[in-house]
Structures are given as C-alpha cells and as structure tokens.
Design a protein around this nucleic acid. Structure first.
Length: 599
DNA sequence: GCCGTTTTCGGCCCGACTGTTTTCAGTCG
C-alpha cells in the first residue's frame, strides 16, 4: 500500500476520519468475522480483514477514488471483488453480500466472538449445538451446565469463559500509551533485578509506540528461567495468572492490564525481539520475504531451511543464519534496520537505509506551555527553569485566550500585562529564551480570539480548537483552514481536539489542512500529551510526505508534563518525522528567524 | 479474496499454551 501523488489525489494512504472509510472498514471487518464463523476459506477471511485495515488506515477519502476502480485495485490488498463492493457501497449505501452474510448468523454471535478465548470454532459449536445466539444466552447456558455437554468443553473452559465475560465487562478498552509505558518500565526494571537475568526488553505495540496498546509484552533472557517466571507471577498487582509455561507466562494486573513474559535464549534474542515487536502484518511480510530467499524466519532466528514440511529447524538443532540481534536478521534479508515505530507495513520494506527519525535529544524548544496566568501550575520563571533544565534553548509562554473561560483564559488587557511579565522574565532568567506567546482559541467559525493588533505583539501564536468539537467535517475543515492561513499564526495546535478513548474530536479533511500548511508555512502541532497525541501518527505521515512543518509540544501545565515529550516523539517517529522538519529541533536562530517571518 | 523477477492457478506465516484429549484442536499474538 504505497502510492504517491499530490494531496487530495492518490497518495500514501494512511488513516483517516472520513466517515465512508470508517463505515466501509467496519463492513469489511464484519464480513470477515461472519465468514470466519461460517467456516469460509481462511484466506478469504483474512483478505476481508486486510481490506478493513487498509480502509481504516487510508488518509484520502475513499469516495474520491471510487470514480475509477483501477485506483482502488492499485492499492495492495484490494482486488477486483473488494473494489466492486466499495463502489457498490458508495453508490447505494449497502453491500449486498454483507446483508446476505448477516442473515446467516444471529447478530449477537459477533459479540460472543469478542470474548477472549472464544474463537470461531467454539462459537459455532455453541450456536449450532446449544443454541447460543448472544452473550446473554451464553451466560444463561454457562450457569445451567448445558454447555459442558459439548465436545472439548470441560469445567475449566466453562470457568474461563465466565471470567472472560466478567473481564470484558470491566475493562474493554485499550490502554493509553502514557498509562502503559510507566507500568511496563517498572516491570522491566524489576525483572532486571532478578538473579540470573541477562536481558529484559519491552516488545509489542508498546515498543512500536502505538497510541493505545492491548497488553504489555516483555522479553527476557536468563540463566534461571524458573526464578524469573516465579518473580514475574509474584509481582505486586498480579490478580490472575493466565498462563505459566516454560517460555511464556501471562498475568493480569489489578488495573486490568495483561502482561506477557517470554523467556528467550540469548542467542535468539534479536529474532525474538523482532518477532514479538510486530506488527503482525510487518512480521508476515518479513517471513514471506525470508521464504522468497529460501529462508525460514521464526522467533528463534532466520534459518537456511525453507522446507516447511519438516520439523522446525531450531528443534533439529540447526544453526540460524542470523538471530542474536535485530540488525543481523534485517541485514540477512537485505533490509536496513527498521525502527520499531515504523514496522507497520506502511512502506518500510522500500527503505534502502535506516531513516534518521527524530529523537528525544533533538528537541531544543518547548513552544506550548501554560503558567498560573491561565490554568497552569508554574510561574513564568518556574516554566523557564524547567525548560532550561531539560536542555532547551527556547520556551514559549502560551496561556489560554479569553474564550477558554474554564481555563481562566486571558482577556486582552491581561494578555498585554502578561506579555510585559514575560519580557521581564526573559531579562531575568539567563540561559534560555522566553517567548511571549498565546494559545489562541479558534472560534467555531474560524475567527481567532484576539484581534490582529494584539496577536502581532506576540512572538508566537498557536491557534487551537477548544470548543465546538462536534461540528461537521466540512465546517471543521473551513474553520481550521482559516486559522492555518491567518498570517499571524505560527502553529495549529492539537488540530482535531480529540481525546483518546474519550472524545472523537473534529474530523477535518486532513490533506486540505496539510496543503494549506505547506503553502502558508504554518506548522502543525503534534501535541505530546498522551491523552491527545494530536496530530496522530498517520496524519503526521501525510504531513511529512508533503513537506509540512511540524511542532512537537508537551502543552505543559506542570513541570512533570515535560515528560510527555517522549510520547510525542514516539508518535512523530511513527509518522516518519525527521528532525529537519520539526521546528522544535531547530537552532535558536533558525527558529527565531522563522517566527519573525510571520511578523 | 489476493497475488505473480520461475506462477492467471495454486499457493497463502509460525509457534506456544491450554484443556481436552490419549495425540490434538482451538486460540492467540
């Protein structure tokens, strides 16, 4: 899935908020599930699931591609049949095949399939042989003992299903990056302290820096696997041990987070780290790549043995071609080392060298921070000293504007005084440049919250949406475009206003915003607060592709919020951002010149 | 259903763990 073009046309395609994309993705996902349940060809099931994923990742509105089916089939993974269904949906609002499929099963069964431990085979069996049609009938029949009569259905399985139902009722949602990473770091530290332990690393979607994660994956090598597994299962917060094998243990914490530990030989640590880091789709392509080279890739290494009829090579004592480090394995497959954050099957297999993605140490300026003047906890001086302690050359004071009354936004008069205070602080505090800025509300119609005369007095203007976050996409696009094109605006702050797991936010035509941002030399923010991560990874990728400037900011309200930068960096890396496109990584002078160019 | 630097047909990634079995199916990642 890698197509280039201009914004608004076909181009590398990555996620989006277009309703048609989301609807179609859901439809294909549903068809995949029903096909699986009715025992269709697994590859057909998989193909539908893949189309669902592609549609969810697309940044262009799929309806813009539908005038010519060739544009659709040009996308890797979408063939004639899927293209037809997409076109059918856009024309009629339905997909006939999906309607037919829905008639084949009780709708509640799809929900039953979501229960951990229950797959298509079991659900089908329970439906056909015990009359289970939804979660409610399942619950009832679990209690009557009726289900235990089914083949391969013992008391343990029944108990596990009961517990799984309770569990999804309690948690359900994926955990945010900023909530999972501190937990994982603590576990990794703890396991590193266990005697005999050699290496412990985080893998999975957490290592890839995804905005939300399903569970925490940890990899370790040790001279004493039993001790490590015991220590893992005995950790504070463990409420249930879900699995406890020789190489894999799995526990659930009181917070509802599931943590998996894999114990791996030192010799195959790299291969295993790669394998358990994923993504799934990236791994599939890596293994296919191995097969094409007459090699076989698994979590034990890359082996010179493509014969899948035989016993696994590691079981026969075969020596791997590469296994100890990820670098070795990538190199043996004629690939540069790919940073974990971009292992998503979004074009990484076309790389000829490791991209120089932005790093935490590149960031030299914080351009979005609040003080006690609005809703922050720091004084101007405290903010400046914290930024200085983080090694920054510049910090901007950007308190809220008057319409953000809930955040004690500054009236025009208060802002004038505040600017003066910042100027004085800039004289007083040595070793850092303090900019007088404002996070100005973008009103629902796109007007800004201060007049131009006042805005012109500021060194830096971030314009952000804070209200009317449910307006329709067309209005949202118009509103944000107006802010981007405003000659006094430097940065568009948290463009969609989304809150992960809590609020969808605006759904503007992101490509239109990017195009305008490039044209007007306005930077788009990557808000590093883990609740926001706005822009999101796929939007960043599109912005990077079209040469927009980006600004990674923590939106700090207190000193510890500076730590959010890590999440912003991970997200930026997922969007393939390099330091030269990020204004926070520029030198003091270059940044100053750029800010001046808008005055 | 999708795809093609040996293919328009015949393939499609790989292994661990659990619970039920007595040799393995189902699920998961």
């Amino acid at each position: 899935m890698h197509i280039r073009g201009r914004p608004g046309e076909l181009f590398t395609a990555y996620t989006a908020d277009m309703p048609a994309n989301a609807d179609l993705s859901h439809i294909f996902e549903q068809m995949s599930k029903i096909l699986e349940l009715t025992g269709a060809n697994p590859f057909r099931v998989n193909a539908h699931g893949k189309v669902a994923r592609i549609l969810a990742d697309l940044t262009v509105d799929v309806s813009q591609l539908a005038d010519d089916p060739a544009k659709l089939t040009a996308i890797d993974g979408i063939g004639e049949a899927s293209a037809k269904k997409i076109v059918e949906y856009l024309k009629t609002g339905r997909v006939k095949e999906r309607d037919e499929l829905l008639k084949e099963i009780p709708k509640g069964l799809l929900e039953v399939m979501e229960i951990p431990g229950l797959g298509p085979k079991t659900v089908k069996l329970m439906w056909e042989r015990a009359g289970v049609t939804d979660v409610e009938t399942l619950k009832a029949k679990l209690n009557t003992g009726e289900l235990a009569q089914l083949p391969r259905m013992g008391t343990k399985t029944v108990q596990n299903i009961k517990e799984s139902i309770e569990f999804i009722a309690l948690s359900g949602k994926r955990i945010r990056l900023g909530e999972a990473l501190p937990v994982a770091t603590q576990i990794v530290e703890r396991l590193r302290g266990v005697k005999g332990t050699k290496q412990v690393e985080c893998a999975g979607s957490l290592r890839r820096g995804k905005e939300t994660i399903g569970d925490i994956d940890i990899l370790a090598s040790t001279a004493n696997p039993e001790a490590l597994s015991r220590a893992f299962q005995a950790m504070a917060g463990v409420v249930k041990v879900l699995a406890a094998g020789e190489t894999k243990s799995s526990v659930r914490l009181d917070t509802g987070i599931q943590v998996d530990l894999r114990v791996i030989d030192e010799e195959s640590f790299g291969a295993a780290l790669m394998y358990f880091t994923g993504s799934k789709q990236h791994n599939v392509l890596m293994r296919e790549r191995a097969i094409k080279k007459d090699l076989r890739l698994n979590e034990y290494g890359l082996f010179a043995d493509a014969d899948r009829e035989t016993e696994a090579p590691q079981s026969r004592g075969a020596r791997p071609v590469a296994a100890r480090t990820e670098q070795e394995v990538f190199a043996a497959l004629a690939l540069p080392w790919v940073p974990p954050e971009i292992r998503e099957d979004r074009g990484e297999f076309e790389l000829t060298s490791t991209p120089n993605l932005i790093d935490l140490s590149d960031i030299k300026a914080e351009l979005h921070a609040h003080t006690v003047a609005s809703d922050g906890k720091m004084t101007i001086d405290q903010l400046a000293l914290e930024a200085k302690a983080r090694g920054f050359h510049t910090v901007a004071v950007t308190d809220h504007s008057k319409s953000s009354a809930q955040a004690n936004g500054l009236s025009a008069d208060r802002l004038r005084d505040h600017i003066q205070d910042v100027r004085e602080a800039n004289q007083r505090v040595k070793g850092i440049t303090i900019l007088a800025g404002s996070e100005v509300d973008i009103l629902a119609d796109g007007r800004l919250d201060y007049d131009d005369k006042l805005l012109a007095e500021l060194d830096l203007v971030i314009a952000s949406p804070h209200s009317a976050l449910r307006q329709d996409p067309t209005a949202a696009t118009k509103r944000l475009l107006k802010a981007i094109k405003h000659p006094l605006v430097h940065i568009l702050g948290h463009p969609t206003g989304r809150l992960i797991n809590r609020r969808e936010g605006l759904q503007p035509d992101i490509n239109a915003l990017i195009e305008a941002a490039v044209e007007c030399d306005t930077a788009l923010e990557i808000n590093a607060n883990y609740l926001r991560l706005d822009l999101r990874d796929t939007h960043i990728r599109a912005a990077v592709e079209f040469g927009a400037l980006l600004s990674i900011n923590t939106d700090a309200h207190s000193p510890d919020h500076f730590d959010f930068l890590h999440y912003g960096i991970l997200t930026a890396r997922r969007g393939w951002l390099t330091a030269d496109r990020c204004i926070n990584a520029w030198s003091r002078q270059r940044l100053k010149d750029w800010l001046k160019s808008k005055r």
